[in-house]
Amino acid sequence: MEKVFELESNAEILIDLRKDLRDLLRQAGWDGKSMDKIVLSVDEALTNVIRHAYAGVRGPIRMTFRDSEEKTEITIEDHGKKFDPTLVPEPKLPREEPGGLGVHLIRTIMDELIYDKNFLEGNRLRMIKRKPRK
């Protein structure tokens, strides 16, 4: 199963996108708890694009959802300023100052977080969650 979303970097899109993503994850066979966590990871990654890559300016985002028997993979591409979340240092927890938790949440939830350095037009981030063996 594959679905491509053409989006605009605007925080207002997040609520509807989460709804669409929950539907896709349900179809992919994820349970409620895992679904909530994957949705959170994607939300955090998109928020980083809106905040850091585009810094509040509107710009295109392409999100590709791919699902197979072994894994669910979500790829997010933008044409904004370079922002590599894999270089963000791990925060010291519990963190008593606001901010700095988004990437930590993604790393904790997803099995792989891959930033494509060869994607020259902006940023391409792949997030992979492997399915439990049956």
């Binding site: 989460r18 909530d36 949705v39 959170l40 939300d43 955090e44 928020t47 963190r95 008593e96 100052e97 606001p98 901010g99 938790l101 988004g102 949440l105």
Partner: peptide, 16 residues
């Protein structure tokens, strides 16, 4: 029913 790290940051700031 849903909260992300922006929500957490809001509560941490209010708490501080």
């Amino acid at each position: 029913g849903y909260m992300d790290s922006s929500g957490i940051a809001t509560f941490v700031e209010a708490f501080q």
